[in-house]
């Protein structure tokens, strides 16, 4: 039995090593300029003696990103898009999901069917007609054209409906109404605190989804000054094709901040991710 435990830990360690290797490689690669890029797998070693040749490492790639290539703009766009979309979508989905779970009204079955149906529509199918629609209402190549269609995803309505069904007791809502609370106050003061865990989870899921989204901004945006990080970094693959260090530094900026943010908040995030599978 003891011996088997060691095998398990050994296999897990191997998996962890394979998982972490690309992160370590990425960070090392971002510190190397092109002339030293091919010289070493991870960090450049000294030609004589042992140890790392620090003189071949620098933050030059990062300096070029921010001073020559206006990468701060892309970073700001990503922060703006992710947080604004995240906040609006969380509020709209919480309100909608709560209404679907806790109000009896004519048409509720139809709306629920719409929510479930919309979740089945594959996103790429809407790419071409969505592009044409944004073109005809003048939202192409604008940040609003990215935010507005994303503020009330059916998936979010569904998650908040499930959360409200399981954690907002009807009696509490009745009590608030008898005390004279308006429906809006009942929602914000009674229901919202009860579904707080789902609010945290969904906010993070949306933030991360928008931050990492590529195909939508790639299709909707044309002006480089509006590009989020994902699209800006992908440009390097074409324009600065030979400049590996620069590509990797841009990728570090796209990866590390969210990684730190989400590892800090991982408990809520991971438990919420699986709630769709277990309760749905």
């Amino acid at each position: 039995m003891k011996q088997r435990s060691w095998i398990a830990v050994g296999l897990l360690s191997l998996a962890a090593l394979l998982t972490l290797a690309p992160f370590v490689w990425l960070f090392c690669a971002s510190l190397k300029t092109n002339e030293h890029f091919f010289g070493s797998t991870l960090l450049p070693l000294r030609e004589q003696g042992l140890g790392i040749d620090w003189s071949k490492l620098s933050f030059e790639n990062y300096r070029r990103l921010f001073q020559e290539l206006d990468f701060a703009r892309a970073l700001a766009n990503s922060v703006f898009l992710s947080s604004v979309t995240g906040l609006l979508a969380t509020f709209c989905c919480a309100a909608g999901g709560y209404a679907l779970a806790r109000f009896h009204f004519r048409g509720r079955g139809l709306v629920t069917a719409c929510v479930l149906g919309a979740m089945l529509v594959p996103a790429p199918l809407l790419l071409a007609p969505g592009y044409q629609l944004l073109h005809s209402i003048g939202l192409l190549d604008s940040l609003a054209g990215l935010v507005i269609p994303a503020i009330a995803p059916a998936f979010g309505i569904f998650l908040f409906r499930q959360a409200s069904l399981s954690s907002v007791p009807v009696e509490l809502l009745e009590a608030a109404r008898i005390d004279g609370c308006s429906e809006f106050r009942t929602f914000t003061i009674v229901a919202l605190p009860l579904i707080r865990p789902m609010i945290g989870t969904f906010l993070m899921m949306t933030f991360l989804g928008v931050w990492n989204n590529f195909i939508t901004p790639q299709v909707v945006l044309q002006s480089p000054e509006r590009f989020p990080l994902s699209v800006a970094v992908a440009q390097f693959r074409g324009v600065y094709y030979q400049d590996y260090g620069l590509q990797m530094a841009g990728t570090v900026i796209g990866v590390i901040p969210v990684l730190i943010l989400f590892l800090a908040l991982q408990r809520e995030f991971v438990s919420g991710l699986t709630s769709g599978a277990l309760k749905g």
Binding site: C92, C93, A95, G96, Y98, A99, L100, F103, F105, R108, V111, C114, V115, A118, V121, L125, L126, P129, G130, L133, I148, P149, I151, A152, A154, I157, E183, F184, F187
Partner: peptide, 21 residues
Amino acid sequence: APWLFLSPFLVIFVVFTLYPL
């Protein structure tokens, strides 16, 4: 109230899902 709470979803659904579909 429920229609007001659901209005963002309904508008977005009709304009950006149903119509493009």
